[in-house]
Write a protein that binds this DNA or RNA. Structure first.
Lengths: 155, 155
DNA sequence: TCTGAAAGACAACTAGC
DNA sequence: GCTAGTTGTCTTTCAGA
């Protein structure tokens, strides 16, 4: 039951364009039943959407870096995410425990663009930055494998 | 020309299940032409695949962390990625410049699972770990917006 | 929550420019 | 590299158990 939902999620994480027909074959359900379950998973927000995995190096964004930021004025209100949201080079923004307050994952076309981006980040959020450049990425975005724990209750 | 490809990539990054019919409407091309272009983008490896975006908190993986690793024996050959690949909790593995050699992004169900994972990482790759726990994620996996630079030449 | 069937929409291929 | 047309498959909805 819940096992089938996890199987559907694994299949869609692996191939987001898999047809309902194929999902039905893989799960042993009818097409309608799979269709219903996927719609329910989307409605519940467990499936948040579908996206294409792109080769960043080949769309003009070959340089990836992690940027840790720390407020210059620790007393100021912490609204860094809102202040940084317009910078589309920032692919992800995580609030973290530890010495710094956020870790940003950024993608740019060149070292020059990275320098420019860092200046914009510092100016927009009034923060100090510490940057770790990615040299290569053995893997990334590997589909999650829910090991043991169960999911949530009903919405 | 190349402009249309970038538009297609942006649309598919935003909705990986968008139909070719809709892609055709959005780009002003015929369905066949869009179909051809997407197939070519996949064949060239610019589109590497499609995936469902899942709510990790609701599939039993509510805890995210970044784990930086450093070899205990700097003279040993660096094969950490191969040694760690079997640990499916590691969603991404980046080789980085800086004090440490890799940054891992991991997702687990609980602090206990994180502790267990860290032990496995240290044992498998003979490394020291430094872990930064994610408290919240304002955003993540935002579609890349190729700003100015152009893509590659032919395969 | 499932099945099965029916309508329409779509994907995939072909030919021709 | 594009358009247009054709065939077979798929998506989506419905009634019913």
């Amino acid at each position: 039951m819940e096992e089938i939902d996890r199987r559907i999620l694994a299949l869609l994480a692996d191939d987001g364009r898999m047809s309902f027909t194929d999902l039905a074959k893989e799960t042993g359900l009818s097409v309608s039943a799979v269709h219903q379950r996927v719609r329910r998973l989307q409605k519940r927000g467990i499936v948040q959407g579908f996206t294409a995995r792109l080769d960043h190096a080949r769309i003009g964004l070959p340089l990836t870096a992690f940027v840790s930021i720390k407020p210059i004025d620790p007393a100021a209100p912490d609204d860094a995410p809102e202040r940084l949201a317009h910078l589309t080079a920032i692919e992800a923004c995580h609030s973290v425990a530890g010495d710094e307050s956020y870790i940003l994952k950024v993608r740019v076309g060149s070292p020059n663009e990275l320098e420019d981006l860092l200046q914009r980040i510092r100016a927009a959020a009034n923060v100090a930055t510490r940057t770790t450049v990615v040299l290569s990425t053995p893997w990334e975005g590997r589909p999650p494998r829910p090991d043991g724990a169960a999911a949530d209750s009903e919405p």
